[in-house]
Structures are given as structure tokens and as C-alpha cells.
């Protein structure tokens, strides 16, 4: 899943203008930047932060969905959920590898996640309370992620763009799977339909927040856009998402919980009501319903696994010593 509109990147850079111009010319020429190419420090730092947030989102995102693996309502759903959560872990793995090409190790990134220095998508700080949430996450959260990520397949940084191509294929499969879960509920018994609606009601606003703060408040957009790390603004992506999703909800017979939602003929898109940005910033700053539990779960896995990782290293060392003899 998904980076959200990047939070807190610092695109400042100290190279001389001539170097920056040459770099910008390559970007404007749609050349891919590769790991050993010269690049401005600000470009590298922005990418590390974005890829890191994205990787952490995949890893933390395993928790809310993993929460339902043991309770999936049928064996078929259990198998597809297991495979999906495993895919998310796989995305985390290739994204950490993409970040390693920029000189940051997985250990450093993990540490930043655990100390709260690095962020992950705010959506995963919300709990999964019903089976319908597994459908909603696939349909809306993966759907929002795809909106964010399709343009990243053309991102100027080669390793990230290439990782994104595979990730997008898998995400689009997840989205269809999620939509199908919700469809089954929406067409099911009254209590199943109510379960789907309740889940949509809870997730709708947090999903819109996934695209990041409004353009009027976003500091990173300009520089990231010039460097073609980002190709659309947060608000543009959010609008595309709403426009794509409203008809899907209508097809399902579910109601999007927004009394202000209506078609705007002039802009050929939907107008929608205000988003609670105070809630967004609260969640980003660690005060969401599950922030503490998510990081604690990752910390526990890391701490409990320390002796396993030490054993693997010690054994590898013994093997090397034996081979050297």
C-alpha cells in the first residue's frame, strides 16, 4: 500500500546552480536518475523520505489487515487475505531495497520507524473492527494508493519507478479483491450490508486524508514536482479518487457519508465536503486511535526477533570461518 502525500520532506539543497541546472535538464528530458548518477542532496533526501514512508506504510499496513487473517469468514477469503498481506510485506522489501540504492540501510530505516522519526500512512492508525474493513481497505485504501502510485511509475528515480510498476499491478489486484468483498456484503443480508456501510462511514474521511494536506498547506509539492518525484498535487489526486469512487459506491448501493457530495458540471467532477485536517494532523503527530499500538507491535516483533537475527549472523560467521580454514 501506499505512500500518502509526502509529509515533512526537506528539499533544500546546497549544490551550485550550474550543477542543479544540469540535473534539472536531465529531469526535463525525462531521463531516469540511477543510483550512481550525481544528484542534489535535497533530491536524495526527499526520495529517501518518500520511499521510506512508503516502505513503512507497507509494513505497518500488514497489522490492521493481519488482524483478520485468523478470523476470515471462509477459507477462500482467508487464502486471499494471507496472500495479500504477504504481498504487502514483499512491497516493503523491494522498497527498502530501492532506498538502499540511496545509501540508507534497512536497519537505519527500521530504527527511524520505531523511534517515530519516520512516518507511515496515517490510515493504518485506524483499527479494523469488522470483516467489512478488509473489503473497504482493499477497495478504498488500495484504490487511493493506486491513484498515488500510478504516476510514481514514471517517477524520475529509476529504482523507485521500476519497483512501482510491479507494486501497482499487485495493488490493482488487491483493489479488485477488496471491491469484491464489499460487493458480496452489499448484495448480502441486511446485516452484511449494514456492516459494509458502517465500514465505509468510518473509513471515508481517513481515506481522503491519505492524499496528504491540501495544496495550500503542502510545502513539498513544488520542488518534488519540478524533480518529477511527484507528478500531481495532493488535491488533484484526491479529486481523481473521489470522481472514480463515487460511481463505484453507487453501484454497490452504499452511501458515501458526505452530505455535501454532488456532481459539479462545470468542473466535470464531484464537489465534496470539508475534511477534518485537525484530525489528520493529530493522527500524523501520533495521537490517532492506533499509533501507539502499531509502533509497539513493530517494536515487539523487532525486540523478540533480536536473538533470532543474532543467531543467524553468528551462524553465518561460523560458516565463513570454517570455509576460510
Amino acid at each position: 500500500m501506499y505512500s500518502q502525500g509526502l509529509i515533512g520532506a526537506d528539499g533544500r539543497t546546497a549544490e551550485d546552480q550550474d550543477f542543479l541546472n544540469r540535473f534539472q535538464a536531465r529531469i526535463d528530458d525525462e531521463q531516469k536518475i540511477e543510483p550512481n548518477d550525481p544528484m542534489p542532496e535535497g533530491y536524495r533526501r526527499t526520495l529517501v523520505r518518500q520511499i521510506g514512508q512508503h516502505a513503512h506504510s507497507e509494513i505497518v499496513g500488514m497489522l490492521p489487515e493481519g488482524n483478520w487473517i485468523t478470523r476470515a469468514p471462509s477459507l477462500r477469503r482467508k487464502a486471499s487475505l494471507l496472500a495479500k498481506v504477504q504481498d504487502e510485506g514483499g512491497h516493503g522489501l523491494y522498497l527498502y531495497s530501492a532506498a538502499e540504492t540511496l545509501g540508507v540501510s534497512r536497519e537505519q530505516m527500521t530504527e527511524e520507524l520505531l523511534t517515530g522519526k519516520a512516518k507511515y500512512s496515517s490510515i493504518f492508525n485506524y483499527p479494523t473492527l469488522s470483516w467489512a474493513d478488509i473489503g473497504t481497505i482493499g477497495w478504498l485504501v488500495d484504490g487511493a494508493a493506486i491513484m498515488n502510485q500510478i504516476p510514481l511509475c514514471r517517477c524520475s528515480y529509476g529504482p523507485y519507478a521500476r519497483a512501482m510498476i510491479r507494486i501497482c499491478k499487485e495493488e490493482s489486484f488487491h483493489q479488485r479483491q477488496g471491491y469484491e468483498i464489499v460487493m458480496k456484503l452489499a448484495q448480502g443480508s441486511p446485516e452484511q450490508k449494514a456492516m459494509a456501510q458502517e465500514s465505509l462511514d468510518r473509513f471515508w474521511q481517513p481515506v481522503l486524508m491519505m492524499f496528504g494536506p491540501p495544496d495550500s498547506e503542502s510545502q513539498n509539492t513544488d520542488q518534488s514536482t519540478r524533480w518529477k518525484i511527484k507528478r500531481f498535487t495532493n488535491d488533484e489526486l484526491r479529486q481523481k479518487f473521489v470522481d472514480a469512487t463515487v460511481p463505484q459506491a453507487e453501484f454497490l448501493g452504499l452511501t458515501i457519508p458526505d452530505p455535501d457530495l454532488k456532481w459539479n458540471e462545470d468542473k466535470q467532477g464531484f464537489d465534496f465536503g470539508p475534511i477534518d485536517w485537525d484530525e489528520f494532523w493529530r493522527v500524523v503527530k501520533g495521537k490517532g486511535p492506533m499509533n501507539r499500538q502499531r509502533v509497539e507491535a513493530r517494536q515487539k516483533a523487532w525486540d523478540d526477533g533480536a536473538w533470532v537475527r543474532e543467531a543467524a549472523l553468528a551462524h553465518a560467521e561460523k560458516r565463513r570461518a570454517m570455509a576460510a580454514e
Binding site: I59, M62, L63, G66, I69, T70, L75, R76, K78, A79, L82, A83, V85, Q86, G89, G90, G92, L93, Y96, R106, A297, K300, A301, D304, G305, A306, V308, R309
Partner: peptide, 29 residues
């Protein structure tokens, strides 16, 4: 095995354990 998903000692095991769980589930089905 699936209870480990997201809680394994390293990311590689977060992939390997569910992978084996999926095989087992396939046989059960």
C-alpha cells in the same frame, strides 16, 4: 503459522511464514 504474519523476527520471515501457511491452507482446502 498465519498468526506470525506481521510479527516475525525479520521481514523475510514475515513473507516465508505466511507463504508456508498458504501451502498448508491449500492442502486443507
Amino acid at each position: 503459522l498465519s498468526e506470525w504474519c506481521g510479527h516475525a523476527p525479520m521481514l523475510e520471515e514475515d513473507l516465508a511464514l505466511p507463504n508456508m501457511a498458504l501451502d498448508l491452507l491449500g492442502t486443507a482446502r
